[in-house]
């Protein structure tokens, strides 16, 4: 006998995997990945062309002794754009999915029927979350396969085992990140009786936690306020700059505090370190990266638990049955 949770999860998974919605989403994520990998490869090509031009100039100038380092190719670095898309767009899509998961059931006769079956509410909500988790994992697995194939095709170099492991780990983190947004918007949609209001608020919170706060380091950086950089235009030395910045430690702390309050920042730091997109972690072992980045992972997990918890908390019979046309 299968548990009711599994029955619901299976049904949720089967329903969604066959739906036009899932197929559209999967197709679109593949498109985004293709675009970002293409752009990365063309950027790299431009870099190589520039290098070759510089090299031939040097040769023409008969300065054969001069050495400029050739651009080095790291396949995982090609994924920066893809990860950024998962960060921004993945979160929006997870929000839309979470909203729709509740909106399609809320106040319908089917949900009334479900609630009269001898199934606990925990099993019901758990089943839905499990089903969606499987769906997101399927989508991520498809995407990872696609990435491995296309990067191999473009660069003519297959991923090494370690690289593949790093990629898989990054996608596992992505699952936690996306499910947080799914649960979060599902919880909001359960909480508010008015469906459009729930969706508007989900998008607004996405704006705050995915766009505003993580970008604050950039947008509030005094050096960024002047084209070409503030300090560069003042002709200060590096030492003088540090002395001056030290006087504004409170501002810097405030900026940093805002930044770390966003789940996206932790996800980004974790994945950028794992994939080596953040330069200092390039070619480092997984255990080294883990040793450094475990607080980000812990926070990501904690927020995931909070998201899932909120979905359970708000899924009361009253809220599920509240009709809202």
């Amino acid at each position: 006998m299968t548990s009711p949770t599994l029955t619901i999860a299976k049904k949720e998974y089967r329903d969604s995997a066959r739906s036009a919605l899932f197929i559209t989403l999967a197709g679109f994520m593949v498109l985004l990945t293709t675009v970002s990998i293409l752009v990365a490869s063309f950027n790299f090509q431009a870099e190589v062309a520039q290098y070759n031009a510089a090299l031939s100039q040097l040769t023409a100038a008969q300065r054969a002794g001069a050495v400029i380092p050739p651009p080095s190719y790291y396949p995982l670095l090609m994924l920066r754009g893809t990860i950024e898309y998962l960060e921004i767009i993945g979160a929006v899509l997870a929000i839309v999915l979470g909203y729709l998961a509740v909106a399609k059931e809320k106040g319908t006769n089917t949900s009334r029927l479900l609630l009269t079956r001898p199934v606990s509410r925990t099993a019901l909500v758990g089943g839905k979350i499990l089903g969606t988790s499987l769906l997101i994992l399927t989508l991520l697995a498809l995407l990872e396969g696609f990435i491995a194939l296309s990067i191999t095709a473009i660069g003519h170099v297959a991923f090494s085992t370690v690289e593949m492991l790093k990629l898989t780990l990054s996608f596992a983190y992505t699952y936690f990140y996306l499910l947080f947004f799914f649960c979060f918007s599902a919880a909001l949609t359960l909480f508010f009786k008015d469906l459009p209001r729930a969706l508007l608020l989900s998008f607004a919170l996405w704006l705050v936690f995915v766009l505003i706060i993580p970008q604050i380091g950039d947008t509030m950086d005094p050096d960024n306020q002047v084209p070409g950089g503030f300090f560069a235009s003042m002709h200060t030395t590096q030492d003088q700059q540090s002395v001056i910045i030290a006087q504004f430690q409170n501002y810097e702390n405030f900026r940093n505090a805002l930044e770390v309050s966003s789940i996206e920042k932790h996800y980004e730091r974790l994945v950028f370190a794992t994939l080596g997109i953040k330069g200092m972690y390039n070619d480092k072992s997984l255990s080294y990266i883990m040793g450094d980045k475990w607080p980000d992972l812990a926070l990501l997990m904690a927020l995931y638990v909070v998201g899932v918890g909120a979905a359970f908390l708000f899924a009361s019979n009253k809220r599920i049955m509240a009709s809202s046309p």
């Binding site: 498109l31 985004l32 675009v35 970002s36 752009v39 063309f42 950027n43 431009a46 920066r80 754009g81 950024e84 898309y85 960060e87 921004i88 767009i89 970008q215």
Partner: peptide
């Protein structure tokens, strides 16, 4: 995102 990325080569962020 997609159109600007394709024409500027900039990453989404």
């Amino acid at each position: 995102f997609i159109l600007p990325e394709l024409s500027t080569g900039q990453n989404p962020v």
